[in-house]
Amino acid sequence: MPTGENDPRLEKYRRMQRIRQFEAKAEAIHAQGEIPGALHTYAGMEASGVGCCMALRDDDYMVGTHRSHGHPIAKGAALRPLMAELLGKKTGICQGKGGSMHLSDFSVGSLGETSIVGSGGPVAAGAALGAKLQGLDRVALCFFGDGASSEGAIHEGMNLAAVWSLPAIFVCENNRFGMSTPTDKAVAGKNVADRAHGYGIPGVIVDGQDVDAVEDAVREAVDRARAGKGPTLIETKTYRYGDHAVNMGRELTPRGPEHEDWVARDPIMLYRARLIDSRVGADVLDAIDAAVSDEVTDALQFARDSAYPAFEEAFDHVFVDRLPIPEDVGKYA
């Protein structure tokens, strides 16, 4: 079996490792106070994001959530500007103004993540509409969580996409908890994917810990969307290892006996075992692990060495015409 640089199986493994190691490093430095504000990590959910993004082209659109580091990494984003953004540096992907929950990277089609739960639905529908009106064959994929599955904006986006047969894929990453509330206590019905029937679109449930299964399901939805047959709702059954937001000084997420079962089904370990069973050498995977570790270390050093934006830059990128800087603003710097 091929195990070269262009082997998509190794790329899936590499991207999952990049997410896991990036999140581990971010959590560690957040605990030391280097990252301001809340930090929502994606560890445990890597197969969902990577499986989805491996089914997309580079020029396809993606909209993420407040748990926002994993999605652009899954789409192939560079780690240096992402880490710099978390530290609020000028070299960050949003020049230090977005922070952990508001990342975007247009170079890989990431239209942005946001702390407004469920807000990505209309954004994805709009991107899909734009592609359709321009005669492009791009698709737009919207990630949202089980906590957002009852938000009106998500359903508005799905309804418009269904009515107009837009090339959109809506992916509910059901990680068992909406902040601290178990999904079965807040979401009516057994499966979020069942709600697709109300819009006359396919609803698909997939094992979110199996990166191949996720990719296959999303690839089918992508092919359907590119063919002009409209959107699909996919629910990935997954699990987040960290609390809703890490290092907050209190446990927000209640863990039951099923926690250990989910940890035992670590998506990276499952895929590593599958690769080894298919005759990919453990040394090849170990080399990827080491290379990713070096990449994350390099990204952190780059971020630490980068400058903060000047205070005047707070007035940039607010409106089309730059806001005037008050004459006395310097005394507050």
Score class of each variant (00 low, 15 high):
Gly281Asn: 11
Leu252Asn: 09
Ala273Glu: 15
Leu270Phe: 05
Asp210Trp: 02
Gly256Ala: 10
Asp212Asn: 11
Arg219Ser: 10
Pro254Glu: 05
Arg255Gly: 10
Glu258Trp: 10
Asp243Gln: 03
Arg219Val: 00
Gly228Thr: 01
Val206Ala: 01
Glu251Pro: 05
Asp266Pro: 09
Asp305Asn: 15
Pro267Asp: 03
Arg219Ile: 05
Ala307Pro: 07
Gly203Trp: 01
Leu270Arg: 14
Ala221Trp: 00
Ile268Tyr: 01
Phe302His: 15
Val296Asn: 09
Tyr308Trp: 12
Ser278Cys: 12
Thr232Asn: 09
Gly208His: 07
Met269Ile: 07
Asp289Asn: 13
Gly249Lys: 01
Ala245Val: 13
Asp298Glu: 15
Ser306Trp: 06
Gly256Pro: 03
Pro231Phe: 01
Thr297Lys: 15
Asp212Gly: 05
Asp261Ser: 09
Ile234Gln: 02
Arg304Leu: 09
Tyr308His: 12
Glu215Thr: 04
Val211Lys: 12
Leu275Arg: 12
Gly230Cys: 10
Gly230Ser: 08
Leu275Val: 01
Glu258Asp: 15
Leu275Gly: 02
Gly200Thr: 00
Ile268Met: 08
Arg272Gly: 04
Glu260Ala: 13
Arg250Glu: 14
Arg219Phe: 10
Val218Pro: 04
Asp261Phe: 10
Val284Arg: 10
Ala273Cys: 08
Asp223Cys: 12
Val206Thr: 00
Glu258Arg: 14
